[in-house]
Simulated assay, not measured.
Amino acid sequence: MFSFSAGHFLKAFNFVGATVGMLQRSLGEFAPEIQRMQLKQLRDDVQYFGDICESMTAPIAFSHARSALVVLDALLDGGQDPVKIEGFNHVMLKTHLEHALIAKDELADQILLAVPSATRQLYLQDDPAFGAKVAANFPKAAAEIEGASKCMALKLPTAAVFHLMRVMEVALVAVYQCLGLPVPLTGNDRNWGVILNNRIRPAIEAKGRGWAEKDNFQEYAALLSEVKDAWRNVTMHFERTYTQDEAARVFDATRGFMQRIADRMDESGNPRA
């Protein structure tokens, strides 16, 4: 999915439109002058505008934006300040910028999805959604965490919960390996109930009462069991959907659990218990 800043796009569009107006008013009367700094800004905006037109399949606007860049580059290579736009350059720049604005017609049938500023960070994820330590210790969960975050930003709550369940599966395997359980997780052994009740809990009990980490691992098992019973089992059936608020609670709970477990181990279960 292609994404861009609506504010930046509108600014570029308006600047290009204002320049077209200035060139139109001066056509045949005088050669307008523009500061190099402003001309560079126009070039950057036309470049940005053209890139969006290309990504959003607006070929006519993109072609004219590219041609306008050729004229702007030639003007900027002149070296003078202010830059005088005259003759052939004046006509060609006006023509190409004017036709680039046809993007509003080429894009008319496209559907744009807006991400509110309140959930912008969930979509862009400039910083790891679950924190740096989870990102470092659980790279296998990165794509699912990203998917859950973007689904939350786009208000797709049930899809977000599906991603979060896959994140918890990575945590489940980590706990399994941390306890030194050697049996590969294949076939029915991948069932959460089997893993928790037939593998993890017996392994915790086998460590004995004096094991310093027993309480922590019992808590891990209890939280994983709650996830299985409350979320995963019903999420796997079509009749269960989630509201945005419900998915937000699952998201926060999963993030908290992953941050907790990342303080103890990585996705391979290291260091071993």
Score class of each variant (00 low, 15 high):
Phe4Ile: 07
Ser5Pro: 07
Ala6Lys: 13
Leu10Cys: 11
Lys11Gln: 14
Lys11Pro: 05
Asn14Pro: 03
Ala18Ile: 10
Ala18Pro: 06
Gly21Gln: 08
Met22Phe: 07
Leu23His: 12
Leu23Gly: 08
Leu23Tyr: 14
Arg25Gln: 13
Leu27Pro: 03
Glu29Ala: 06
Phe30Ser: 14
Gln35Leu: 06
Tyr48Met: 05
Glu54Thr: 14
Thr57Leu: 03
Phe62Gly: 03
His64Thr: 06
Ala65Thr: 09
Leu69Val: 13
Val70Ile: 14
Leu72Met: 11
Asp77Glu: 15
Gly79Cys: 10
Val83Glu: 07
Lys84Cys: 06
Asn89Gly: 03
Glu98Trp: 15
Glu98Leu: 11
Leu101Pro: 06
Ala103Glu: 06
Asp109Gly: 08
Gln110Trp: 02
Ser117Val: 13
Thr119Lys: 08
Leu122Thr: 01
Pro128Met: 00
Pro128Gln: 04
Phe130Gln: 03
Phe130Met: 02
Ala132Val: 12
Ala135Gly: 05
Ala142Cys: 11
Lys155Ile: 13
Pro157Val: 10
Glu169Tyr: 01
Glu169Ala: 08
Val173Asp: 10
Ala174Pro: 10
Leu179Thr: 14
Gly180Val: 06
Val183Phe: 00
Thr186Gln: 09
Gly187Glu: 01
Trp192Gly: 01
Gly193Trp: 00
Arg201Gln: 13
Pro202Leu: 00
Glu205Gly: 04
Ala206His: 14
Gly208Glu: 01
Asp215Trp: 01
Asn216Leu: 08
Leu223Gly: 04
Ser225Pro: 00
Ala230Trp: 04
Trp231Arg: 00
Arg232Thr: 05
Val234Leu: 01
Val234Tyr: 03
His237Asn: 00
His237Ala: 00
Phe238Arg: 08
Glu239Ile: 06
Arg240Leu: 01
Arg249Ala: 11
Val250Thr: 08
Val250Met: 06
Arg260Phe: 00
Ala262Cys: 06
Asp263Gly: 10
Asp263Tyr: 01
Met265Gln: 05
Glu267Gly: 14
Gly269Gln: 07
Gly269Asp: 07
Arg272Ala: 02
